[in-house]
Simulated scan of single mutants.
Amino acid sequence: MSDDQAVTLTPGRLRSWPLPRPEGDKSSRGTVLVLGGSRSTPGAVLLAGIAALRAGAGKLQLATTESTAAALSIAVPEALVVGLPETERGAVRGQMDEELEGLVRGADVVLIGPGLVDIDETGALLEAVMDVIEPDTRLVVDAYALGALSQRRSLLQGRKVHPVLTPNTGEGARLLDRDLNDDLDEESIEIARTYDCVVSLFGHVADPSGSVWREETADSGLGTSGSGDAAAGVITGLLARGAEPAQAASWGVYVHAAAGQRLSVQHGRTGYLAREIVDGIAPILAELEG
């Protein structure tokens, strides 16, 4: 793909594409449900959920393994935390009970994937979510849920919900069932068209029409544990505020990268943590939105 076909994301470009500014109480900024985690990876849900709040979401709900729910409710007092049945190995079971169904149906945005660890249980859970989610609810698919989706491509066929996918390059390769080439603009378009969705692939955002937005300032420091959870959370929070999928993904990848650039001055290119990226989201947004 030629460079002149992709839109390079800059502060000026984003300011000309302003985010919605919800008025009123927290309900006007949307309800987010983050569905994920495991006994060994509860932090992924925490990072994604706090990132969604920092991006402006109004209400946060976390659904995770019952063995970690109490600790998460203390760590994130701003959230409603629900414990879900888990396997002997501490993975979320792929089943939909009445309480979880109510949360899915009541959310404005559902993020599924951060911290999930069992591919079969995750696939069953993703299918259960797709069966009950409301047509006007936004869906973000991340991490293990992307691997499950790659094994169940027909899951999206005939659905009214078109998710935002947030793969890294390894997950992108699984979504296409082949190695990626060096042109990530073209690869992101192919994923978007294959799954009829907006995709955010390693700083390259595409939609099925072939439009591409590219973030060019990200550095290697973003390749740290939990960074992807933070990035998915930012996009989720922007969707909750009312941004359209391509806008939320574009703003999200820029803000994520900009937070990393700022932290690299303090901690070096590879010394900062995902939790610090999360803390940097709101200041970056405040500067961009004026």
Rank of each mutant, 00 (worst) to 15 (best):
R89H: 14
V164F: 10
T122K: 08
A286I: 06
S264P: 02
D185S: 09
V92S: 09
L176F: 06
A231L: 15
G233Q: 05
L19M: 04
G223S: 11
A148F: 07
R174S: 01
E215H: 03
I189M: 10
Q261P: 01
N181G: 14
D25V: 01
W213H: 10
R214A: 01
D229S: 06
S200M: 10
R89Q: 15
A282V: 05
W213D: 00
W251P: 02
G170M: 14
D142Q: 15
E186M: 06
R275F: 13
V109G: 03
Q5C: 01
S200A: 15
Y272H: 09
A69I: 06
D118S: 11
G221E: 07
T10H: 05
E23P: 01
R29L: 04
D108P: 13
C197M: 06
V32I: 11
D182P: 06
R93I: 12
D177W: 05
L175G: 03
D108H: 14
I119E: 15
C197G: 07
V199I: 05
G242K: 00
W251H: 00
A257E: 00
E66M: 08
A124H: 14
G147L: 15
R39T: 09
G252T: 02
L84R: 04
C197V: 03
D179N: 09
A124N: 13
S16I: 06
R214H: 13
D25C: 03
G203R: 00
V7Y: 03
A206N: 00
V45I: 10
R275K: 15
V253E: 02
L146W: 02
S220W: 12
R13G: 06
V255N: 00
S150P: 05
T68D: 14
T8C: 09
S2W: 05
T224N: 10
V32S: 09
A55R: 00
S200E: 11
G106V: 11
G223R: 07
E216Y: 07
I284C: 13
L222T: 08
H162Y: 12
A69H: 08
E187L: 04
P11K: 07
A240K: 02
G12A: 14
G12M: 14
R193L: 01
S27R: 10
V34C: 08
Y254E: 01
V141D: 07
L46R: 12
E98W: 04
R105D: 10
L273I: 07
A249C: 10
L53T: 08
P167T: 11
A249F: 03
A274Y: 14
D219E: 11
E186T: 07
D118P: 15
L62G: 08
D279M: 04
D196I: 09
T65Y: 04
V117E: 14
D3N: 09
